[in-house]
């Protein structure tokens, strides 16, 4: 069964998401203790499957993680980097390298940090755009944007950064942004920053994917809930179960059928 899940054309998760080049902005919201990393890795599979280009900005996991998970899904990320189909901006590495630097680039001047990051992205996507044929599409994937809040960058700068990314010169660029929100309630009139960021992303997105834990706690049969929403369309809700090598999706209530099999 899982063999089918990782197959090239029969992936049920990708079939449910139905990513098209028309989806210019895709927001992936990770709620609480749920882990939405599999959505990003599956979307990358789809990008490579369609022979499209990828600019990948990583804040949350190491390249080694993405490489191992990518291999399980049937693509070779480092191979794609070597062949010029993908470029990676490893932000975890950049932060680690900055720790002993006297000027601490990212914390002294958060505005300059954001501008430098965008300039890097702009330059990399231009290189990708120059190397592709006319029909190919480029995807900018950011995993995950909310870590910019941890670095002390203000919400205004982050929203400005996303606006720049969404208005990159090349029209054939789509942006996929992963972001994490906590499950806590708003305290008084002020919304927590991660929720403001996530709401802003959902508002501008063409496809809004949310991965959340079960409302009733934990289960051995269901890992969590995926909600897919497009403006003007009905929201789809799916349950999923994560296995070591793949993801199984089913409609709410159908997991009992899997138990009986």
């Amino acid at each position: 069964m899982l063999g089918q899940l990782t197959g090239l054309n029969l992936n049920p998760l990708l079939a449910a998401i139905k990513l098209t080049p028309k989806d210019k902005i895709v927001s992936v919201k990770e709620v609480g203790i749920a882990d939405s990393n599999f959505i990003i890795t599956h979307l990358i599979k789809k990008i490579f499957q369609n022979n499209e280009k990828l600019c990948f900005v990583t804040f949350h996991n190491t390249l080694n993680h993405y490489q191992i998970v990518g291999k399980k899904l049937g693509y070779d990320l480092t191979g794609k980097v070597t062949s010029g189909d993908a470029v990676i901006l490893d932000m975890l590495k950049l932060i680690e390298e900055n720790i002993l630097n006297e000027d601490y680039g990212f914390v002294e001047n958060t505005g300059a940090f954001i501008e430098n990051l965008f300039r890097d992205i702009e330059q990399k996507t231009e290189v990708l755009a120059n190397s592709k044929s006319n029909q190919e599409h480029t995807y900018l994937v950011i995993d995950d944007l909310s870590h910019l809040l941890d670095l002390g960058i203000s919400i205004e700068f982050i929203i400005r950064f996303i606006t720049w990314c969404c208005n990159l010169k090349d029209d054939s660029i789509s942006v996929i942004v992963n972001n994490h929100v906590s499950t806590y309630e708003a305290n008084g009139d002020l919304l927590p920053k991660d929720i403001i960021l996530s709401n802003s992303l959902s508002y501008i997105s063409d496809l809004d994917i949310q991965v959340s834990p079960l409302k009733t706690g934990r289960s051995n049969e269901v890992s969590g809930i995926i909600t897919l929403a497009r403006p003007g369309e009905e929201t789809t809700e799916l349950h999923y179960k994560a296995y070591d090598r793949g993801i199984k999706t089913f409609n709410p209530g159908e997991s009992l059928m899997n138990l009986l099999k």
Binding site: V69, K72, S219, Y243
Partner: peptide, 17 residues
Amino acid sequence: LIKLAPINSFASKHPGS
């Protein structure tokens, strides 16, 4: 055990309920 992140995998090793 609040969180057990899935590293190099899709599934967390969290024991569930």
